[in-house]
């Protein structure tokens, strides 16, 4: 599904990734861990074309329905329309546009891309409210501006709601657990587990072990100095939880 080869990237001449390799197959859940400042959050931004970052070499190959795409040649919106979703660590607030209007516009855009008729307002509202209830988001969030005045936890739930709504194939979850209390974490972990299937792949970035206990990753990678220095299975995450990173670096 995703094949990253020898990726080098920087921001303002500062090198962030220095030869990163990663291969994610359909249905797999990968987790990236690493000490602060290792470039964990950067990776998901680079994969979704954040304008601040530039890639100097390497390739990012994304395969959907046997068709290979180079994410480096696609705009952020095309990446999204082709089934890649990033749940952001810090979703921005945008005033003046109601959440419903926003969700309607993005759904419309995705429907258009897939060549299917857009859901009418009434049905869409029902679908969204259903998801909101599942994620324990207050129903008035539809009338509020995008993320405006949302608590940290509400913003994260809104990200997950968009994921459930757009039904992407490749999902990056960037520090989804930060800002969530234990109830919030349980709700979101449950939604993600229900959303997992043999076709969908996940890349999870986290500092903490507690979300991994709930969503057991198939692979764990440790990012340091712009590349993976260690990869393993779930037991690696447990070892890091117990011993920290010092034995690795």
């Amino acid at each position: 599904m995703l094949k990253i080869t020898d990726l080098h990237a920087s921001i303002d001449d500062k090198k962030i990734l220095t030869g990163l390799n990663l291969n994610i197959n359909p249905g797999e859940l990968h987790c990236i861990m690493g000490p602060n400042g290792a470039g964990k959050s950067t990776l998901s931004k680079i994969l979704t074309k954040h304008p601040d970052y530039s890639v100097s070499s390497g390739s990012i190959e994304y395969t959907l329905n046997f068709e290979k795409n180079n994410l480096l040649n696609m705009d952020a919106n095309e990446i999204s329309l082709n089934g890649v979703f990033l749940a952001m660590q810090h979703p921005v607030e945008i005033g003046g546009i109601s959440n419903f209007q926003f969700l309607k516009e993005i759904t419309k855009s995705h429907c258009l891309h897939q060549g299917v008729a857009a859901t009418n307002d009434e049905d869409l509202k029902k679908i969204i409210l259903n998801l909101a209830e599942k994620l324990k988001l207050p129903s008035d969030f539809l009338d509020r501006s995008i993320n405006d005045g949302f608590s940290g936890g509400e913003k994260k739930r809104n990200e997950v709601l968009q994921m459930l709504l757009l039904k992407p194939n490749l999902i990056f979850l960037d520090e989804l657990d930060s800002g969530l209390d234990i109830d919030g974490l349980n709700i979101i972990a449950k939604s993600i587990k229900e959303f997992q299937n043999s076709e969908r792949s996940f890349l999870l970035v986290t500092h903490y072990h507690r979300i991994l206990e709930k969503i057991k990753p198939d692979f764990v990678h440790v990012l340091y100095n712009g590349k993976f220095i260690k990869s393993g299975d779930y037991s690696l995450a447990k070892k890091i939880e117990d011993q920290g990173y010092s034995w690795l670096i």
Binding site: T48, H50, D75, A76, S80, L81, F102, I106, S109
Partner: peptide, 10 residues
């Protein structure tokens, strides 16, 4: 970037 990453053009 946020809006674009959800599938809207610039």
């Amino acid at each position: 970037y946020y809006l674009q990453s959800r599938g809207l053009s610039a």
